[in-house]
Design a protein around this nucleic acid. Structure first.
Lengths: 358, 358
DNA sequence: ATTCTGTATGCGAACGTTCGCATAAAGTCC
DNA sequence: GGACTTTATGCGAACGTTCGCATACAGAAT
């Protein structure tokens, strides 16, 4: 309601044409020192802010990037969502962009319809896509319509679109090598179903590390399931029931939740995680450090990924070509805690950290 | 790049003026059955989508709602973020609105500057605000400029802006009454510092419940701190050191993280949470159910809150007045698990739930 | 003096809508 | 059958920018 200040009013005050003001503000033209000064003074005095809508109507740029993600099921938290979003927001803000977030629909047609609407109405200039299954129709849609986007995660064809992904294979390799260093020789894996691309990629690292150590991976060491606490729990009971001499002494899980299940199963079997059986998770969710014992886990450098994704995407929008590298695989980090190396002190000290007050 | 279809082309095809097409599409006028049909056919055939930008330039509505929240510290997850966002997205979508999310800056001036920019550029029509401290400058700014917003959470003055909040006092009252029902008489609280509005509100319920049961709350039963795991841990050790006969037999914590710390402390003291000492958390974060023993906690109906907030806000934007009730306090729910009632079965069954695969 | 180059600014049009008012045609009334 | 309401559609203007081209005026070169 506070009447909008427009270019014309600024122009009047600076005694130039409003078009000149526009050009000076968007640095499109060189004017004399004196007028430039007058214009900026007028802008300041009137507290002028260009109208976003008028601007983007004319320039066909919305300065907005769309993002949608699959919500996690009610019994789980997405451990990286907050960090990922915030890192993207910040990077976008630095370049004058904002993020438009929109709901995720399992129903494919509905989801596609939103993408289409956002594109057709001109609300967004590009997307970030993170929910990448083997066969992601939204991706095909965007590729087909040559609409810009970057992926957090990738599919098989490395050239089809620009992405950043965590090197899951490397992560598992590091995890297994850490266990080998500790003397473990029989290492089991709590894996995802074999149709999971991300899961298979991670398992490659598991097999590679064992192979390099001259250890033959035994099929009974690999348990597969949906990545829940219960799968971790029951799979671990099965692993512990394997005959002596073949029974694993350590377990790597494809996510923390299965690792939590594994630790519970180990404890209920009268064994101690970290002393009798080593356990490693994946994601380093914040609760991992509060487990008993604290869980060794593989951490993804989320903030860096979010920032880089955004900068690469905006780089493309602003210049027309993707900055190198177009695609990138970043190394995760192994966060070592007591679930693999055992207890060090008797008092758990987790550092002084902020509260979660709203 | 695929050339934009405009009103004029639709109009040409339907042999009417383009203004008529506009009016028919936005249901602003009544036309004959025949032309209406022709227009919609043309729209369909040409696959016309109105330009969002042109529309909002003319109508001064961006159909966009801004939201920013304080990121949680790296060692914690915001247990409700995903659910809250998704519920708002969905409600907004149903009314043609989208959410613009933007970064949170601790530095006040920077944060205010973003709000100002979003308002002045006309990028958003309203805000949702959830980070409500006693003295929130962004709120004052919005109130002062009469810019629409709703709060998740409220401040002292109930009339200053529309909000929905969880009745924290009721939550604690329910928790304490649950413990009383189980026979506990000496109940301690892990509280937030006394300058926390939300914290004080919750504690009111604690005192009220004890009072109603004719129990005098003892000051040594209330431990205050920043809501971290460590605060929960060390505070609990202090509580357990209280002389026999006064030592609490149950503990309610203002958040789950402190409750986790409490359970660890209890265990390390050789006691069993849920059998020797009852423990209750607040938030019902997804990990609560995976603790050993699973944690009884107070759950906030986040999806409902997100949906209602959004609908109320959009109701205001579309009609000019807030639907009743302008402000609302919703009841939380006590989720009872073994940390208060003890173990029931030996096998933990947590239900079949989806994986967290990306 | 005349033309030439260059810099500083102005002008008109366009982006794709919405909105109020004007107008034409058809129907109602006495 | 003319005046009067009603219904269906058209028209012009406006929203606040950006952008290409035109133009004015200086000073340098011919």
């Amino acid at each position: 309601m506070p009447k909008r200040i427009t270019l014309k009013e600024v122009a009047a005050r600076a005694s130039v044409s409003y078009q000149t003001v526009s050009k000076v503000i968007s640095q499109k033209v060189h004017v004399s020192e004196a007028t430039e000064q007058r214009i900026w003074d007028a802008v300041r005095e009137l507290n002028y802010t260009p109208s976003y809508t008028a601007r983007s109507l004319r320039s066909h740029r919305s300065m907005t990037i769309g993002y949608s993600w699959r919500p996690s099921p009610p019994d789980q938290t997405n451990p990286i969502l907050d960090e990922f979003l915030q890192s993207m927001f910040r990077a976008a803000e630095n370049h004058g962009y904002y993020l438009l977030c929109f709901p995720y629909h399992d129903e494919l047609q509905k989801q596609l319809a939103i993408y289409r609407e956002l594109i057709n109405t001109g609300r967004v200039d590009a997307f970030v896509i993170s929910t990448l299954n083997y066969n992601e129709p939204c991706v095909s849609y965007l590729v087909e319509h040559k609409f810009p986007f970057v992926g957090f995660g990738h599919l098989d064809d490395p050239d089809s679109f620009p992405y950043i992904d965590v090197d899951g294979a490397l992560g598992l390799q590091m995890a297994v090598e850490h266990l080998l260093d500790l003397g473990h020789r029989r290492i089991a894996a709590l894996a995802w179903p074999s149709d999971s691309r991300v899961g298979n990629n991670r398992m490659d690292g598991y097999f590679l590390a064992l192979d390099k150590a001259g250890i033959k991976a035994r099929p009974e060491w690999v348990e597969r399931g949906e990545g829940t606490f219960d799968v971790g729990f029951t799979s671990t009971l099965k692993l512990l029931a394997i005959a002596d001499g073949l029974r694993p002494t350590a377990i790597v899980a494809m996510n923390d939740l299965m690792a939590f299940g594994a630790m519970t199963a180990i404890q209920q079997s009268g064994l101690r995680p970290g002393k009798d059986i080593g356990v490693i998770g994946f994601d380093d969710s914040p609760t991992a450090r509060y487990m008993d014992p604290p869980l060794t886990s593989i951490r993804q450098p989320i903030s860096t990924i979010g920032k880089n994704l955004m900068e690469r995407l905006i780089g493309y929008l602003d210049t027309g070509t993707y900055p190198d590298p177009r695609c990138e695989l970043v190394a995760p980090e192994l966060v070592i805690r007591e679930s693999t190396i055992g207890k060090k002190t008797s008092q758990p000290i987790h550092g002084k950290e902020d509260a979660d007050r709203r």
